[in-house]
Amino acid sequence: MTLPRAPLQQILTKYPPKESSLIMVLQDVQDAYRHLPLELLVEVAKALEVPKAKVIAVATFYKAFSLEPKGEVEIRVCRGTACHVRGGLLIMDEFKRLLGIEEGETTSDGKYTLEAVNCVGTCAMAPVVVVNDTYYGSMTVNKLNRILRATKSSKTADAAREETE
């Protein structure tokens, strides 16, 4: 599989070619390709003059990076303390049932990735679900279907949130 190189080239022109740019570049690569493919990591290493081993150490250290392709829609279910006590586990179970995947997995059509995160910093809205970059607070099990429906149609994030409220 060869990946398009244009996005990577564009990302690399945005930052100075040195080691301190590494995390920013990897973040952008993760956004553009939805994962960090090995062939691109090698090119990043070359462009920034950082040893490949170091690039891979950074890529495997941060939870925000993934070596496996993530789905178009990334669903993060918070299981921080506040979300946990307000039913975060039930939310997770319902997502698993609806999507037919386990935590950390991606649906076979590459549409959804389901993940548990430890805290998203919005405990007052517990339990929280983050879909791509949209935060959904005070979640209940029967609101989840609507979130999934909203991601299927090409509605804006705001419209999707309104619908669940």
Binding site: P51, I56, T60
Partner: peptide
């Protein structure tokens, strides 16, 4: 390994 200039090994994961 880094000091030697090879940087062939690294820590993986966390």
């Amino acid at each position: 390994c880094e000091k030697i200039g090879a940087s062939a090994i690294s820590s993986i994961g966390r």
